[in-house]
Design a protein around this nucleic acid. Structure first.
Lengths: 221, 221
DNA sequence: ATATAATTCCATCAAATGATGGAAACACAT
DNA sequence: ATGTGTTTCCATCATTTGATGGAATTATAT
């Protein structure tokens, strides 16, 4: 109950929670430098100083936003893991894509912020942790990419990153891609799921079957 | 020979070209709002007003940067297409991944800016075109996803986007991912190629072979 | 009802930022 | 050398932006 973030999470009707919610969306849309404290305050309908009263500096608010969405995503992935546990791999993947995609389309700011974290720089470097997120190892294990949660091969981490990013890309890029392809929201979502299944399932579900006669070096040279 | 961009491309030693080069990198790293005209000018080693003299408003410079990287990327993809033409599909993919990845690791600002275009918003909306880039249809045809360049199925466009974005992700995310996985640059690049092959080749190279007994609805339900 | 603490807003600051006018410096043809 | 057009920099503006002090308001406990 110490930090503002914990207070916000405890009472979703509190002003802290309202601000956090708006801040998530705004930072997600415009990035750190693209979002001003005034934009957030205006959107919430409060004075800018009220925002500072609750969250302190802009960097602190941003940091809380990052912690918050990481927490939400983690929770969702745990939930998914419980549902797919014990199923055969292809089915696990299919369900996971379905659930995660639906969830992220409801909270697109999560994908936005995750990608900003990965690809963007801030003028003043932040001191947020750079360590391999827990959920990456969890997913890796869930995808049969490794046995124990402790020793994850690098290639397994890379594959999980590729998978997660593919999903985030389509969520974050909805505005751009959907306009480009002239699709309605529902159509787009359906196409996203179809595409993700097309790309991901063969790879993780024994994709080598289709090309056993071609070795790696041969492919590139 | 009319626009500043054309002048800059004509003479790579001109001040316009120098500024453009730095602007590409900076906008790529920090995004539109994260980059100030002063940052660019300082990095070039000129006064800020010299920058304005050559490129006008910040938005104009940014627009030129976007046009420039799209042009470069397009050119590279044409080059790749010529090399892989006529090869069997798996090999085409392998070579394309290899070449494109190498190129983008040399010009990571291209990936950065492409992703910013897709995922980020600017406070004032830009008037840059939203149409399906030509190269998407070219790639689609090259991957046997459609017959003619004119009628591209939506799913084909989606698959091409998924493929391109997967590559961009690893380029743009190098700082974050490489630090996270404690890899040297060369190791990282090699892992990226391996991962991209792992993910992409099975899907486009008849990935259905491994799961012909599982129909779509079955996978998700 | 009154005292105390928590919350909100108004006014304001200092620094950062986009942008420009005009003087100096430079290039170069005649 | 002189004149012309180009390029560069210095000084300066108006806005925007992050941030804060302090008064006013509201909630809460006694």
């Amino acid at each position: 109950m110490a930090t503002p973030l914990e207070k916000a999470r405890k009472d979703p009707n509190s002003m802290k929670a309202k601000i956090l919610k708006v801040a998530r969306r705004m930072f997600g849309e415009y990035g750190y430098h693209g979002t001003t404290t005034r934009m957030i305050a205006k959107e919430v309908g409060i004075d800018i100083s009220t925002l500072y009263y609750h969250w302190g500096e802009k960097t602190d608010l941003y940091e809380s936003v990052i912690l918050d969405i990481n927490n939400d995503l983690r929770q969702k992935l745990d939930e998914v893991e419980k549902v797919i546990h014990g199923q055969p791999l292809a089915r696990r993947l299919g369900i996971a894509i379905d659930m995660v995609t639906d969830y992220l389309f409801e909270c697109p700011e999560i994908s936005n912020l995750v990608l900003f974290q990965y690809f963007g720089k801030t003028r003043k470097e932040s001191n947020l942790d750079f360590h391999v997120p827990d959920f990456i190892s969890d997913i890796a294990r869930s995808m049969d990419l490794c046995k124990t949660k402790e020793s994850i091969p690098t290639s397994a981490s890379m594959r999980v990153l590729a998978m997660m990013n593919s999903i985030h890309n389509f969520i974050s890029g909805e505005n751009f891609f959907r306009e480009m392809l002239k699709l309605k929201r529902e159509e787009y979502i359906e196409h996203v799921k179809e595409t993700l299944e097309f790309i991901l399932i063969p790879a993780f579900n024994g994709g080598s079957q289709g090309q056993t006669d071609i070795n790696q070096t041969d492919i590139r040279r």
